[in-house]
């Protein structure tokens, strides 16, 4: 159940260029893939809360990992440890729990934020996690140090070749899908998600993608955040905030068309 809560900032630091990690005192009992709506200002400008994924949650607090892109996220970056933050959450459906023992996670840039929490939880459940991480360059490939040893495999790709595979992260998927389909969980820019879904489909693997949309309420009431899905019943608009943010890949990027 979502709740409105005021939480104190415990830690807040720049972990990569334009990328901040914030830890709040307390847990929201989130599932991987869920998010919170953060109030960045107590005035009317900016008016709306900002949706940010749960990057980690548990007894050590609620962690967020975010990139400063516009006014709201820059205002968030100015907050100091000890400050209070008004949070609404946990929100959204989260990633479905896989039946398989082995899963592939494909992260693009800041899309790694929710996948870190997913990887941690899957690892705790005894699953093997293959983490494929792509970004523009090496400096943007931040992962929490504690997560890395728990991964079965970690492979990186950069657009500029500054580290790992020089090229698209989706090109790394093939090696792991060749021996049979594994479920794929992905979050990142739309172009990458489209390629992830296409690659997974070509190996008969099921892909789940976590989407972004401009949001107002975050709880399903305003119908502002919809994405067009192609389902068996035809075209529908579904709310990213409650029906998502995680959707079966083929419903978002229908292959036939």
């Amino acid at each position: 159940m979502p709740q409105k809560r005021v939480m104190q900032i415990k830690e807040h630091s720049l972990v990569a260029p334009d990328t901040w990690r914030m830890v709040l005192d307390g847990s929201v009992s989130a599932k991987p893939g869920q998010f919170v709506q953060v109030s960045v200002s107590s005035t009317y400008d900016p008016l709306l809360r900002r949706p940010i994924s749960v990057h980690d949650d548990g007894p050590d607090g609620l962690a967020l990992l975010y990139r400063t892109v516009g006014r709201g996220t820059h205002m968030l970056a100015e907050k100091k440890p000890g400050d209070n933050l008004d949070i609404l959450g946990p929100l959204g459906n989260g990633f479905p729990v896989p039946a398989e023992q082995k899963v592939i996670l494909v992260a693009g840039g800041i899309g790694a934020a929710p996948l870190c929490y997913l990887a941690k939880k899957l690892g705790e459940a005894g699953k093997q996690v293959i983490f494929l991480f792509g970004a523009q360059n090496a400096t943007q490939l931040y992962l929490p140090k504690t997560l890395i040893p728990s991964l079965t495999a970690l492979e990186k790709a950069t657009d500029d070749g500054s580290t790992g595979h020089h090229g698209l992260v989706t090109e790394l998927m093939k090696k792991y899908l060749e021996n049979g389909p594994l479920p794929v969980y992905s979050c990142g820019p739309e172009g990458m998600l489209r390629a992830v879904v296409k690659t997974a489909a070509s190996y008969n693997a099921q892909a789940y993608v976590s989407l972004e949309a401009r949001m107002a309420c975050g709880v399903g009431a305003c119908l502002g955040c919809v994405v067009e899905l192609s389902q068996k019943s035809g075209k529908t608009y579904q709310r990213v905030c409650v029906d998502g943010p995680v959707f079966p890949g083929e419903e978002v990027f229908c292959h036939g068309c």
Partner: peptide, 23 residues
């Protein structure tokens, strides 16, 4: 009623533009 295609929301100074289209 299906409503309008996205993008349906735009934040403005101290306000919000919406074009839900009666979904």
């Amino acid at each position: 009623c299906l409503g309008n295609p996205p993008i349906r929301l735009a934040e403005t100074p101290a306000g919000l533009l919406n074009a839900i289209g009666l979904q």
